[in-house]
Design a protein around this nucleic acid. Structure first.
Lengths: 212, 212
DNA sequence: GAAGCATGTCAACACTGTTGACATATGTGG
DNA sequence: CCACATATGTCAACAGTGTTGACATGCTTC
């Protein structure tokens, strides 16, 4: 993002070097990591936390390193670049499978409800972080992929009627708009609104795309 | 955004100093600006252009200054900070008044159509820039205000039925989701979709919020 | 012409991501 | 057990960033 490179071209110099000491101990579930593997893990944890709470630009490699008790140079050695560190640590987990699973009837409301109810903080902060960092080509693409994988691909084949693929994509767009308001712009009114009513109202509009 | 301050607190040190030479010549429409006013204008123009095409973080004060043929220190002197320069230059113009004006019937489709058809590039890039820079508290708030002023306030009083204010806010959210896809994430499929069909389909979902 | 202020220039500060050279630990083959 | 190789960690430096304060120049007004 910064230095010594021509502004628009991005060259990845060396790949993220996974420490050799890193092997899955087949035994314990909670592995006591040693040496480099432990350091890498510490960096990863620190990065996840900082990227969730700070802006991309403000979560500095030096901050991450210090929080992990490691040297900034190690961060780059292990992950290649700050951008790759971001990509490896900030991710969506399986997110809407549950809500997605049910019948088409009432799906709109169920999705919105799932979005609001649970502790979706992890997903929210991932979306927020990627959205704000979407000036980076790779991150932008990654977010776009995630949207397609999570919504469009599972949904499109199930929709009946014309423009199924388009409508599936627009379902995702409509949801994105809601997350924008709640998680990125932190609209106080939106946050204060009764979840159930919000699910009903916005879910109904979603349903209009699902079953026109 | 950067230096010498404790990370979270933001102190504005000196106000943007408007050059004294700046007076509206009451005569000509296109005023030939002189001295400082001209410089300020040049900086403003350069900033507008760079913020539209580059990310906030990548549009450096030094770049802006050099594009304007001025010294970086002058940029700060005139605008107070990079953040304030952003706020003063990146703005929405009157945007949806036209589409908003008509009857409630078919309003959803008209709004989407207005969003897509014209050259809305200026508005798109303003939204994109502010969204990506929304890690800054002031910028986040400004964007939120703009959304309320442009959509919620004009729309809410016109909506009939329950939850009018909420529904107006959700209309804005739904639109934001579409702009996300087109202008920020640059979804190729979305961009390739026939505008008319898109207006119809998404507009119908919007209409479900406008007239449930 | 001199004082005063507007405007412009410059070098420096503390920060950023990233790199390359070095030091140390760790493990392996003889 | 030593020697060697490699994995891991440390450090200083580079070019870039936003911002500041000290200085130089210009223009106005007494």
């Amino acid at each position: 993002m910064t230095t010594a490179e021509p502004r628009s071209v991005k060259i990845v110099r060396h790949d993220a070097s996974v420490p050799k000491a890193m092997k899955q101990s087949d035994e314990a579930d909670v592995v006591e990591l040693k040496g480099a593997a432990k350091t890498r893990q510490a960096i990863s944890d620190a990065a996840r936390e900082l990227f969730a709470h700070e802006e991309y630009a403000n979560a500095s490699v030096r901050n991450i390193a210090s929080k992990a008790g490691a040297d900034p140079a190690l961060v780059i050695r292990y992950f290649g670049s700050k951008e790759q560190l971001f990509l490896e640590t900030v991710q969506f987990e399986g997110f809407f499978e549950l809500a997605m699973a049910g019948p088409l009837e009432g799906l709109g409301e169920r999705i919105v409800s799932a979005l609001l109810s649970d502790q979706r903080d992890a997903g929210f902060s991932a979306y927020r972080a990627m959205m704000r960092a979407s000036g980076s080509e790779v991150i932008r693409r990654r977010l776009l992929e995630a949207i397609h994988e999570m919504f469009v691909e599972p949904l499109a084949p199930r929709l009946k009627g014309p423009d199924a693929a388009l409508r599936a994509r627009l379902v995702a767009a409509q949801l994105a708009g809601l997350i924008d308001g709640i998680a990125i712009l932190e609209d106080a009114e939106l946050a204060a609104t009764d979840r159930k009513r919000l699910s009903e109202v916005y879910g109904a509009a979603l349903q209009g795309l699902i079953q026109p």
